[in-house]
Design a protein around this nucleic acid. Structure first.
Lengths: 181, 181
DNA sequence: ATTGAATGAGACATCGACGTCTCATTTGAG
DNA sequence: CTCAAATGAGACGTCGATGTCTCATTCAAT
């Protein structure tokens, strides 16, 4: 069991039950509690490791999505596709705002936010996206939809294979049916 | 300080910091810890009271929104408008899936889910909504967007007055700009 | 003003999670 | 096979949150 695998298992569990015990986390990862403590000094260290992993993974996901290339619509589709792998991790981190208590926002997240926000801004400037929804809100909404869909998949309310489609279609086109599309 | 006001203050705090202490909850509500315990036997009772309040409030919100009247689009707009007041409460309850552990879904939530889902289904059958996004997913997405926007407002990333607009416009029309709208 | 209920502050014991430790067992490299 | 490192299981003390209690004070109704 790799260190990152342990972290992913922890994210999958903690995203649904944020108050899960260290023992539960260990069981979910298929290792003993002692081994979990050998990898991560304590709960704080575990959460911080999850944070670091999340930032690293999404930094890489954003790179692979090539947010600056092609149309903003295509870039957004690639972004969602690349985010699927770490959706549970994102779901956990988004709900753990308590990490940033004392308004000391993590610099890594600020950088990620800026990249997503820039993508939405580019779409607006190029005329592909509407301008009455702020990039900041769209960024939050994207995170929220990814996390929500990850939960829905975990609960069996959405098929895993529909992950990308459900998010991108709702985000891009909305629910309203328009004859011209 | 009314009982419901205490619950709302608790929801506002717990939606951001789900591990908040009973003492913190009491302080947030402006009452003493002993008084909090007089109202709610313990933490479990508090959470269950939040659940009950949420179900009650949204049952009423759905009634006021008259989901069966007019077009599905208008009904959805009314639904978001009526949900604003309890958005923080929803944000907390949505993330507390741990309440339903042991797949014993709360009956009240199942009823609410059915009503929202029926609204989306009606919109699809009347030709207003697209049919390639399942009502179950749209229901989850609606909850997710309301919760996300509530957080964004709390963090100052979205203006409170834009709450309804940001959610309804994104949900109905998506970010893509279409010339025919 | 008086009285009874409600509140806030604090003390206290209990309990569960945490973190550290030991030891037997397993794993993997040589 | 041998040996060293890693792991799982469990024991143990610590610490913080919890829930209950008391008591002085405040509040509201009469």
């Amino acid at each position: 069991m790799d260190r990152d695998q342990v972290l992913r298992a922890a994210a999958a569990l903690l995203s649904r039950k944020s108050t899960a015990t260290m023992d539960e986390v260990a069981r979910a990862a298929g290792i003993g509690r002692a081994t979990l403590h050998r990898h991560f000094a304590g709960r704080d260290a575990l959460v911080r490791a999850l944070e670091d992993l999340g930032i690293r993974e999404f930094e890489g996901a954003f790179d692979r999505a090539r947010l600056d290339e092609g149309s903003a619509v295509e870039a957004l589709r690639r972004l969602v596709a690349e985010s699927e792998r770490d959706a549970q991790l994102l779901a956990f981190l988004v709900t753990e705002n308590q990490l940033f208590e004392g308004d000391q926002i993590n610099e890594g997240w600020a950088r990620l936010d800026a990249r997503v926000s820039a993508l939405f801004k580019r779409g607006q400037e190029e005329g592909d996206f509407r301008i009455d929804l702020s990039p900041a809100w769209l960024t939050e909404a994207l995170y929220g939809l990814i996390g929500t869909c990850a939960w829905a998949v975990m609960d069996g309310r959405v098929a895993a294979k529909d992950f990308q489609y459900m998010i991108t279609e709702l985000l891009l086109g909305g629910v309203r049916r328009s004859v011209e599309k």
